[in-house]
Design a protein around this nucleic acid. Structure first.
Length: 273
DNA sequence: ACAGGATCCTGGGGGC
DNA sequence: TGCCCCCAGGATCCTG
C-alpha cells in the first residue's frame, strides 16, 4: 500500500499531533509481525517524549527524548498509523496502542496482512534503524551522476532497479510505473542500455511524480488512508498503473500489463519503447 | 549477477 | 449466501 508519498502524507498528518507528547505505555497483541516486538522495549518507551516525526524512504521514525532512541515503523502493504481516542474500540488488526500523555488518546498501529514492522531502535554504528545503512538516497537528493552510474552498471531491468531501495529509497510499484511512463522509458529496458540523457529524464520524472503525489496526499486504491480515514487523490492522475487496456492518455494505445520483478507492471507499448 | 518463484498474511472482488 | 481463484501499494529468501 504505502510508498514514499503515502508515508510522507502520514508523517505530515502525525507530526503536529504527536510532537511534544509523552508515551505512557503500550498495549499490544501477540500476533507476529515480520519481526517481533521485544518485551523489554515496553519499559524503554515509558515516559519518553516524542521529539520529532520524520521519514526516510518508506520508514517512519518517531524520535524520542532521553538518549538516541526512536520508534521505527514500516507500513508494509496494509499498515496504518494514527491517533485515536482511547475510549474508541481499536479496529480489527490493531497490533499496537501507545498511550499518550494523560491516556485520553492513543497512537495506534493497524496492519491486516502483517507485512509491516514496529520496532524500538537505538543508533548502532551510525544506523538509526535496521535498514538505514542499506538504504539508497532520497529521490529528491539523487545525484545525477551517481544515479546514472547505478543504472548503467546493472544488467537488471529498469522496473527492478526502481523497486530496489538501495538504488533510490521510497519508490514502489505504483510510482515506478508512473515515473517510467513520465520518462517514456520501457520498464523492460536494461540499466546497461540507458544513456545519460535517459537517466536524467528518469530522475526528473521520479521527482516530478513523487512531488505531485505528495501534493495530492498519495494514492488511495483499496485502503490507504491517512489520519483517521481520509483518502488520497493521486489515483485520479494515474497514467499507467492500474490502467490495463485503457487508452494511453498521450497516444490512445491501450496500456499493457505484464509481470516484471514479480510485480504487475503497466506501460504504454507505443510511448515507452 | 540476475530472473523468477515462493513466502510471510488477510481481505476484496469476480465467476459460478 | 458460499466456494474457489486471483489479486493486492513490500521485502526477503531460495533455486537455476
Amino acid at each position: 500500500m504505502p510508498e514514499l508519498p503515502e508515508v510522507e502524507t502520514v508523517v505530515r498528518s502525525l507530526r503536529p499531533v504527536l510532537v511534544g507528547r509523552t508515551i505512557r505505555g503500550v498495549q499490544r497483541k501477540r500476533l507476529k509481525l515480520r519481526q517481533p516486538w521485544k518485551r523489554e522495549w515496553d519499559r524503554e518507551l515509558f515516559d519518553r517524549k516524542i521529539v520529532e516525526v520524520w521519514r526516510r524512504g518508506k520508514w517512519i521514525l518517531l524520535e524520542l527524548s532521553g538518549g538516541e532512541a526512536r520508534l521505527v515503523v514500516h507500513l508494509g502493504m496494509t499498515g496504518r498509523l494514527y491517533v485515536q481516542e482511547s475510549k474508541s474500540a481499536p479496529a480489527r488488526h490493531t497490533h499496537f496502542s501507545f498511550s499518550l500523555d494523560d491516556g485520553q488518546e492513543q497512537l495506534r498501529y493497524l496492519d491486516p496482512r502483517r507485512f509491516g514492522l514496529v520496532l524500538w531502535a537505538k543508533t548502532v554504528n551510525d544506523c538509526r534503524f535496521p535498514a538505514e545503512c542499506e538504504l539508497g538516497p532520497e529521490p529528491f537528493d539523487l545525484q545525477p551522476a551517481r544515479f546514472f552510474e547505478s543504472l548503467r552498471g546493472s544488467r537488471r531491468n529498469l522496473k527492478a532497479l526502481l523497486l530496489d531501495q538501495t538504488v533510490v529509497a521510497g519508490v514502489g510499484n505504483i510510482y515506478a510505473d508512473e515515473a517510467l511512463f513520465a520518462a517514456r522509458l520501457n520498464p523492460m529496458s536494461l540499466g546497461t542500455e540507458l544513456d545519460k540523457k535517459q537517466a536524467g529524464r528518469l530522475r526528473i520524472a521520479i521527482v516530478k511524480v513523487l512531488k505531485r503525489a505528495i501534493e495530492t496526499k498519495g494514492s488511495t486504491i483499496a485502503n490507504f488512508y491517512y489520519g483517521e480515514g481520509e483518502a488520497g487523490g493521486y489515483q485520479n492522475e494515474f497514467r499507467a498503473y492500474d490502467r490495463t487496456d485503457e487508452p494511453c492518455r498521450r497516444c490512445r494505445t491501450p496500456i499493457k500489463r505484464i509481470r516484471l520483478a514479480g510485480r504487475s507492471t503497466h506501460f504504454c507499448p507505443r510511448c515507452q519503447r
